[in-house]
């Protein structure tokens, strides 16, 4: 539009949608659904060494009503599935889900009667993270995938979009 030329560096021209997406992606508040051992790595992901506040997600909310992103970290049994679903239902839209670790993604080594073979059987999942447990870097990678997803697709149509599978650790220097 040439407005930048006229006004100098003090202006940025963008679409309103883009601006909202930019805000959303840099303040994803996670709901830590720490069901078992993956939760330890999730804590490391929030701690100063890996420091998720670099990505604007340091505000872990234990109330689902204040969260955007549910990190399901751990083996989900059939009994627990109802609890996970109930908490997911309490989160306001728009919301995203990371299935952290192989147990959550596919049942993992628990190929047994009591463990749900993948949480995508009862909630929509955006990013699957492999590993047992995944390194905190890998969870950061998943968070960045969510950010990319928000930037590209916005929050409206994310349930129709293809989920992302991460099986390689992220190349992030810590």
């Amino acid at each position: 539009m040439g407005l930048e030329k006229a006004m100098g560096d003090s202006f940025v021209i963008t679409k309103l949608n883009e601006a909202i997406r930019w805000c959303q992606k840099n303040s994803i508040w996670p709901q830590p659904m720490g069901i078992s051992c993956c939760a330890i790595e999730m804590m490391a992901f929030a701690s100063p060494r890996f420091d998720v506040s670099r990505f604007g997600s340091e505000v872990f909310r234990f109330s689902p009503r204040q969260a955007d992103l549910m990190i399901v970290a751990g083996t989900t049994t059939y009994k627990m599935a109802h609890v996970v679903r109930k908490i997911y239902d309490q989160m306001p839209d728009p919301k995203w889900v990371i299935a952290m670790g192989v147990c959550t993604s596919s049942g993992g080594m628990y190929r047994t009667y009591s463990v749900v073979q993948g949480i995508d059987q009862f909630i929509p999942v955006d990013v699957y993270v492999g590993g047992c447990p995944p390194r905190p870097d890998n969870l950061i990678n998943a968070l960045m995938m969510i950010q990319k997803k928000i930037q590209q697709q916005g929050s409206q149509e994310h349930h129709q979009a293809q989920p992302i599978y991460i099986d390689q650790p992220a190349n992030i220097s810590v």
Binding site: Y78, K79, A81, H82, R85, K86, R111, T112, Y113, S114, V116, Q121, F122
Partner: peptide, 11 residues
């Protein structure tokens, strides 16, 4: 080993 289908309902 994998249980009886339908005996444990999911949401």
């Amino acid at each position: 080993l994998m249980g009886i289908p339908g005996s444990l309902p999911l949401p």
